[in-house]
Computed example of a mutant assay.
Amino acid sequence: MFGHLAHDPTAQIPSIKVPRAVPRPAPSDAIERGLQKATTRRDVLMILLGNYGGLRCHEIAALHSNDFHDGVLWITGKGGHRRIVPAHRLLVELLDLFPAGYYFPSELNPTGHYRPASISRRIRTLMPDGWSAHTLRHRFATEFFSRTPDLMALKDLLGHASVATTQIYTATSPSRLQAGVLSMPDLDAARSAAQKLRAIE
């Protein structure tokens, strides 16, 4: 009843190539518009935690005042793993304004704090169309790496288990690529050849 084929029926199925992931950092004007649209201190905090801390929505939602001391955020990431994220000076100023307890408290949830989906939805509401909490995380990663090209440090900051995941965030921006190419010196011979070709055409 259960026969076996002598050949592999999947051998002729073409493989599907997974597109190479590229970072999509939120631009500064989108963040400015999001902050301008903010109506509460918590709105501002959730955007800054993404932009200056690279935090995921579930990490923002569960952040507690006990997780912040001596200028450092202690983040509980995926799998319950703890990591440290030094707090940017603007975050320090803002966090000091909040009372003890969850930074995003909620009496509606048994956890006592916002659900990650609520953080995600609120940031999407504040930011212009197409930009989200995850694009804030992308911005943090690309900005950090452009200033401190230390892949292992970025891996630790983002809470990745594998450095391969971190590499997705480190692709060089088109503007930096352009700046690098345009900074290459002109060769006199190349300039002369270009002028000759222009004259011929």
Rank of each mutant, 00 (worst) to 15 (best):
M1E: 12
H4Y: 06
H4V: 07
D8S: 08
D8V: 12
A11N: 10
I13E: 15
P14E: 12
S15W: 01
V22I: 08
P25H: 13
A26Q: 04
S28I: 11
S28T: 10
E32R: 06
R33I: 02
A38Q: 07
R41W: 01
R41N: 01
D43W: 01
M46T: 08
I47G: 02
G54M: 05
L55R: 01
R56P: 01
C57E: 13
E59A: 04
I60D: 03
S65E: 02
N66V: 11
N66C: 09
D67A: 11
F68M: 14
H69L: 07
G71K: 11
L73C: 09
W74Q: 12
T76E: 13
K78F: 15
H81L: 11
R83F: 09
A87T: 03
H88T: 00
R89G: 00
E93R: 07
L94P: 02
F98M: 05
A100G: 05
A100T: 06
A100D: 10
A100Q: 12
P105F: 05
P105T: 09
P105H: 08
S106P: 04
E107L: 06
E107P: 00
P110N: 04
H113W: 07
P116G: 03
P116D: 03
A117T: 13
I119W: 09
I123M: 15
R124G: 04
L126G: 05
P128D: 04
W131S: 01
S132M: 14
A133P: 02
A133K: 03
H134Q: 10
H134A: 03
T135D: 00
L136K: 10
L136P: 02
H138A: 04
F144Y: 15
F145R: 07
F145N: 07
F145P: 05
S146W: 02
T148Q: 13
L151A: 03
L151Q: 00
D156H: 09
L157H: 08
L158I: 12
L158V: 10
H160W: 07
H160P: 02
A161M: 12
A161Q: 13
V163N: 00
A164Q: 14
T166W: 01
Q167M: 15
T172H: 04
S173P: 08
P174D: 09
P174E: 08
S175K: 14
R176D: 13
R176E: 15
R176P: 00
Q178P: 00
A179N: 07
A179W: 01
G180D: 15
V181T: 00
S183E: 13
S183L: 05
M184H: 13
A190D: 15
A194T: 10
Q195M: 10
K196T: 08
A199H: 03
A199L: 05
I200D: 06
